[in-house]
Design a protein around this nucleic acid. Sequence first.
DNA 1: ATGGCGATTTATAACGATATAAACGCAGTC
DNA 2: GACTGCGTTTATATCGTTATAAATCGCCAT
Lengths: 350, 350
Amino acid sequence: MSLEDLEDEGRRAKPEPVTERAGAYTKPTLKTIAEMTGLAVTTVSRALADAPQIALETRLRVRQAAEQIGYLPDRAAQRLRTGRTNVISLILDPHEEILGYATSMIRGLTEALRRTPYHLVVTPHFSDTPQIDPVRHIMRNRMADGIIFTRTEPSDPRVKLLMENNFPFICHGRTELATAHPYVDYDNYGFAYQAARKLIDAGAKKLSIILPPERFTFAHHMRHGFMTAVREEGIGFEIARGVTLDSKSDDIRDYLYHRMGEPECPDGFICGGEVSALAVMAAAYDHGLALGKDVRLVAKQTSGLFDQVRPRVETIYEDLSEAGLLMGRLLLKRIAGPVPVHELQALQTV
Amino acid sequence: MSLEDLEDEGRRAKPEPVTERAGAYTKPTLKTIAEMTGLAVTTVSRALADAPQIALETRLRVRQAAEQIGYLPDRAAQRLRTGRTNVISLILDPHEEILGYATSMIRGLTEALRRTPYHLVVTPHFSDTPQIDPVRHIMRNRMADGIIFTRTEPSDPRVKLLMENNFPFICHGRTELATAHPYVDYDNYGFAYQAARKLIDAGAKKLSIILPPERFTFAHHMRHGFMTAVREEGIGFEIARGVTLDSKSDDIRDYLYHRMGEPECPDGFICGGEVSALAVMAAAYDHGLALGKDVRLVAKQTSGLFDQVRPRVETIYEDLSEAGLLMGRLLLKRIAGPVPVHELQALQTV
DNA sequence: ATGGCGATTTATAACGATATAAACGCAGTC
DNA sequence: GACTGCGTTTATATCGTTATAAATCGCCAT
């Protein structure tokens, strides 16, 4: 159905074109349908909501009329009246350079929101203000029906605030709070554990891991998995000092280059991110060290990037797109009504 | 100011707590301020709009009261009344795997929208429906005040539709339409031209370029820049057949691997994307060809990725974050009022 | 006929903001 | 004292939707 058809329908429906400018396209509303069918606006509204008090025949007639003129409810009006926004807010730190991290998640989220009335609004969180500000803002001003955020901390104030106010949300990552809360997380313990075992199996004698910043819960998970593996094997290890996965990639490379020139340097590296893995490779290359022989590497893979990286690097995959999908689905479920918390938790395994 | 303070203010303002549940936080509205100041709702509205008919003293008093209770206008109500949505819609194809492409642009966009009342809404366009659908939908249902989209085509129907309806938009990339339209674009002609010259200067004897899909305008620009350079130098060349920058990276690598095993293979490659550049490197590696000696490469860089890639690769930078910033600024300017089209065009130079 | 009942439809008010036109108070003028 | 004009404030209506209560209808029992 073309735009022109719709205009025609709109005009035909209005018997008295009083103030209507010729050719002006007027958006169909409930009133339009009411005039078409000779019913009251209220009836049309109820009919479209499929209320059982409205005669079945009327409901069908109304639905048909609505379809004919391509009626879509006005979101602003619905929102004003009902208080529901039909918006899911994704809080993103636009300074995060994390390669494709957000993109993958957005892909999964939009997939989950497909064919629902929900829109995805990206709410930036600029790091010069407290993390909790956008959350408070969204809650206080009813900017969304649900919130999604990432980079969860052990005693994350955002989680506390949202739980206290019973506001629907899903976060990427877990807290260490006593009360259970909704989340989608990746098993970073398992990642680090498996990565360490792979390196050991391949013959590495001393392991090193570059961790996320300490303030994030998943840094602890990774460390724990790493420590468990090295302790089990009684192998040498160290944890990269002064740099994290959030450091500028040049800084990571500089650190590694420096470290590789020192005695007792590790020969097995674990990287929780693709860019830092490339930095390891660059540092080794600049030292003339052979990857897979002098130095070994296991990286977390979140995109197709490492399929093209040579020499080939062992990777463990984290599906961020699926994480987004899960977060979207769980959030919609939570918004629809009260759900036991454990049904709103998902852990992606290695 | 804490949430509790706000509640207190809210209650203090209401002299008769009739239906108000104790402790329930009620969002401040114009009415709240009206009751606080003893003015009419209309006056408060006009005062906050800084209308000159309202006495300066009143304006100040109202503004102070608003600040005190942390008043923020209800977007749904404003939208319903004024028809303005305060929303910028970014149309994204969530199936695009383009690494960080969207993220960079979103970063720039959110920066441009910062401290404005505008929100960024990501509108997915699933490739199983016509490209124009989301545009039409946004226009017909007034879902946004302005639209941003990417991957512009020579006679892009989206541009036509938006121009016909005088709807504010900026697209990333240009059309070849007769009528000028707003855009932000990167000089891909210059990119390909410079890339070719770099390769020739480095001693390459036969050049190859991997182009974007033909339907996008920037594919033509790239080809043109490429052809101009090779013609000027009278050097051998070819254009990758059967694969584009949108192909799966494995397919690109397979194509290149195959090509590198044939006679008269190019020894200089131009890649308009980071993943495809890695694919070139992988193919060369798998053949045992030395990069920078047997095979040369110039890549377009849109992230910090290639700073860590070894051996070092010559790159030309495209600032997508800046593109997003520009698009945001220009769109806001356009929304604010009519602007000559040439003031809404920006070309990022190489 | 009268009342009551179930099934269906409708009128009214409200959400929170703003555009429009009207009203108000107070000066100065005739 | 009535009139005009100015600066300021306010009442009213409206955007499109929906929750609530009220109204209408036919039909059956009284």
